[in-house]
C-alpha cells in the first residue's frame, strides 16, 4: 500500500538575494513497510525534502499526499495534529526534552494525544525495553550517551503509533558501534512490526542496510534503486 505520494515537489528559499531551489521537482512514492535511505551530497536537499514531507515546512509547489490526505491543504493547527497521529520524527541532534526522563519523553507524545496514564506507562515501558533501555527509563537525557538518547528518540517516534518514521541523519552524531546498534533496532522494528522508515544519511554503512536508496542531487532525484 502506498502511504506517501510526492508529486512535482518544489521548495525554494527566497530569503537570500539569490533564490535557492533546495527541492526542485521531486516525484516519489513510498510503500508501507519500506526501509528507505535518502542520500546525496551536502546541500542536495535531503533535509528540506524530509521537512516538507513531514509537514514541518511548507512546499513552494507540488503536493505531498499521506495516506490519501493532501497535507499542504491543512491549516497549521490541523497539520500539527496530523503530524502527531501519523508521523514519527527522529532528529540528528536527538532533541529530547532535557527536563524529562527517558520514560517521560516517550510518554509525552501520548499525553499530547490524550492517552490515559495506564496506557502511556505500559507502552513507554514496552518501547524502551524494545530499544534496549529497560534499565535506564528514569534517567534524564544528560545522563545517557548519544546512542542511548537516539534510541529514546526512536521509542518516542513510535509511541504515537505513526504510519511512518522520518529520520534526518539519525546516526550523524553517533560512533560506529552506536550507529550499528541503532540501525539493528530500526531494522528489527521494520521487519517485525512492519514499521516504515525513511532516513537520510551520509554514512555508507547505513546506506548498505537500506532496502531502497534514493539519491538526490541539486534538489532532484538522480537515482532510485531497490534491492532485496
Amino acid at each position: 500500500m502506498k502511504i506517501i505520494e510526492i508529486k512535482n515537489l518544489k521548495k525554494t528559499y527566497e530569503d537570500n538575494s539569490v533564490p535557492v531551489h533546495a527541492v526542485n521537482g521531486v516525484d516519489l512514492s513510498i510503500e508501507e513497510g519500506e526501509f528507505t535511505a535518502i542520500v546525496g551530497p551536502s546541500g542536495s536537499g535531503k533535509t528540506t525534502l524530509l521537512n516538507v514531507v513531514g509537514g514541518l515546512d511548507d512546499a513552494t509547489e507540488g503536493t505531498v499526499i499521506i495516506d490519501g490526505m493532501e497535507i499542504n491543504t491543512l491549516s497549521s493547527r490541523k497539520l500539527t495534529d496530523f503530524r502527531m497521529f501519523n508521523i514519527g520524527f527522529v532528529f540528528q541532534a536527538y532533541n529530547l526534552i532535557p527536563v524529562f526522563t527517558a520514560k517521560e519523553n516517550v510518554e509525552f507524545v501520548m499525553h499530547l494525544q490524550g492517552a490515559k496514564k495506564a496506557h502511556r506507562e505500559a507502552r513507554s515501558t514496552e518501547l524502551l525495553k524494545a530499544v534496549g533501555l529497560g534499565e535506564m527509563m528514569d534517567r534524564r537525557p544528560s545522563k545517557l550517551s548519544g546512542g542511548q538518547q537516539q534510541r529514546v528518540a526512536v521509542a518516542r517516534a513510535l509511541a504515537s503509533k505513526p504510519k511512518f518514521v522520518l529520520a534526518d541523519e539519525p546516526t550523524a552524531n553517533l560512533d560506529s558501534k552506536s550507529t550499528e546498534n541503532l540501525l539493528d533496532i530500526m531494522e528489527q522494528l521494520n521487519k517485525n512490526e512492519n514499521i516504515t522508515f525513511i532516513f537520510s544519511t551520509h554514512d555508507q554503512r547505513v546506506v548498505n542496510k537500506a532496502r531502497r536508496v534514493v539519491t538526490l542531487e541539486d534538489g532532484k532525484v538522480k537515482s532510485d534503486e531497490k534491492r532485496e
Partner: peptide, 12 residues
C-alpha cells in the same frame, strides 16, 4: 527544543 515540541504534536 520548541521546534521539536511543535514537530511531535504540541500545538501553538
Amino acid at each position: 527544543e520548541i521546534g521539536m515540541l511543535m514537530a511531535v504534536g504540541m500545538n501553538r
